[in-house]
Design a protein around this nucleic acid. Sequence first.
DNA 1: AGCACGCCGACT
DNA 2: GTCGGCGTGCTC
Length: 838
Amino acid sequence: MQTAIGEIQTLFVDVLLPVPIPKYFRYRVPSDMVEMVQKGVRVMVEFGRRRILTGIIVESSEFPPSSYQAKYLLDILEETPSVNDKQLKFWKWMADYYLCHEGDVLQAALPSGLKLNSQSRIQVNPDFDEEDLADLSDKAVRLFRAVRHQQSIPYEQSADILEVKSPYPYIKEMIQAEAIIIYEEVKEKYKPKKVSKVRLNPTLLENASGLEEVFTSLAKKPKQEDILLKYLGLVPVYNDPNVNDAGVDKKKLLEEGKEMSPSSLKTLVKNGILEEFSEVVSRFDDAHFQLYQNMGHDFELSEAQQNAYSQILESFKTKDATVLHGVTGSGKTEIYIKLIQDVIEGGGQALFLLPEIALSTQMVVRLMKVFGDQLGVYHSRYSDNERVEVWRGVNEGRFSVIVGVRSSIFLPFEDLSLIIVDEEHETSYKQHEPAPRYHARDMALVLGRMHQAKVILGSATPSVESYYLAQKGQFGLVSLTERFGNATLPEIIIADLKKERKQKKLKGDFSSRLVDEVRSAIDKEEQVILFQNRRGYSPFVMCEECSWTPTCPSCAVSLTYHIYKNDLRCHYCGYREATPKTCVSCGSTKIKTVGTGTQKIEEEIQNFVPAARVQRMDQDTTRKKYGYQQIIEDFEQGHIDILVGTQMVSKGLDFDNVTLVGICNMDQMMFFPDFRAMERAFQMAVQVSGRAGRKSKEGKVVIQTYNADHPLLKKIIKQYYEGFFRVELKERHQYSYPPFTRLIKVTVKSEDQLLGEKAALQLAKGLTRRLGIKRVLGPQAPTINKIRNKYLQEVMLKFERQNFDLLKAKGILKEEIFIIETEPFFKKVQIVIDVDPL
DNA sequence: AGCACGCCGACT
DNA sequence: GTCGGCGTGCTC
């Protein structure tokens, strides 16, 4: 970017702000900041009357805007850009592709620690003559006194003081009377981590006798002497006076080994013998982390792994992306590590994407051992400060490898050579709310292209989309069919619920087969995982007399019964109410639970195997910050015998002692009303089975179903991905679903049901007229047609994958939506676009 | 998206 | 009369 040349006095910059408005904002650069103007640098600006935001400079110009008066930048926040050109280009591309605003992307991309947080505060105007208070309203006087008393107060507090909902009118009155001043307090949210350190006062080292004199003076002060001696032990200044500068950790000096007296240390500092100072340290540089440094660098690839590795390198020669299809337990991780090591040796950067859940497990520890402090971990469970440090670390080139969740695609990579998307089929790579509704796997491919990096899509059960492209030759394809070591694939048993029901062998939600297997595993002191893809106790309750069922007041769903708080909850909006004792409709007291969730499975299995220690793992038990971690740890250490859980239990848990996995209700997955149901069911079953029998012990998987002869089950038994894929692809082709088409889902939301329907209908009509009838489906109300008091209508667009101008179609979509949005009659409807919905 | 402004109903 | 509701429009 050009900076001021010669006599250019005024410079303007276009700033990208994290707001959903499709434009840049042009600000004027104060003359003393002109030198600091650079593309990608964060700036602080006033936006509107009161808001202060962080933005990114995307362009500079010597021309003032013609139609408005540009405001001055308030500040330029850094000398080196936080955001690089590749990111800006990538973000722009994403906004275009997902039909959202660049500001939405920025909002998602920047960790909030890099966004400023401004808070309005009120203080009294020192020039105000208090005699003029007589002219103000009673409330204004009250506020004035309160503010004067406390120096300054946060803006929001004024409402409490005045005991009104909207304080603005009074504040406005007072500003006009010049009684108060409003100012914005901006705090940089990122706080570097500091440690307190101690060192000798350097003047004592200037001459040889300095220290001796000190010891003489401390002859009768043993506690202080002890501290000094310990210091000299830790920091050998006699050998090399220069080591004194770095000093020693205060905590270490006081607490490690023999404990020292903090007050004596204080005295030493007071007397100028020691000095205290603080140092900024990395959050990732603590002892815990160092433990892993440079450990376990070497491992050998098995022959199969070596083979796959070579094939990947071969495929990289001609393809940008390669699907690595490796059965569960085949040891894909070692191959990834090898590939990353290659990249590091070549001086490049690597990004390793994992689904959120897999990231909180052993994988990270594993990678830490290999890559030590070259590895940055970008996790949503980490604090914001930590995320800022990773961002900066990538920016400064301190990390050559990043493991992270989907949002790590936004990090300031300069030169990526490799991107790995592990568990590529995972649906959690897609962000649903809010915009940008992006798919991290797809964006990894785009990012890879921009960096000319190679991309690996790894999975035991690749998504139909990816595998299709691999088969077509657009991606490379490498398969690993052997399980690592001697591990064999688990034996898969179909428990036929229909048959057992006839034979009256069913026990609640359990087949006798599954119960027997669980008992036998527990007898052998082995561990069990039970999978039930629904949380709560039962998805609804019902009056036995009249069939009345409590539903959510804001959503079109029944309320789920939760046993331990004995309440009913809506899983869509969080609404809760006590479980009614009598039927609201007929007054009967016979209210029964219907259907099964994790809590009920937990209860039932506990009854069947009373001695077993059962733990449930779902959103309800893992919400607490370390809930998930804690359960995993307990399970790993054998404090839990049976783990009952949702999706969560299917991912990345590798425990040698788990020999049995039960899928409680396979039908629920297979017959879910969605064209991806079979794919999900297959993936789910294979992934869950992968948890059984890892090393020497043989594993078993029991799948309970009322449709024991369903063809999908046969494929699952043989872990026959190819077979599943062929059948599925045929179906997709027949009904023109992805990967043969691209979908865009447009959802129209409105509190007024009829208005929403009208808007959706008009939108669909406009689209049909311009895109053709076969590309527009709906409008149609989704199965759950009301969430949070908003009625929903969906219009689905279906586009050919080939010989179709997608860009043009998206343009048309934007235009048609614009028409609805600007139509005053539809003012109250809201339109959400989801490109490539899942 | 936020946030101010402005015009209407329901209360001390 | 005042308070607060919400509809409307703008943000460099």
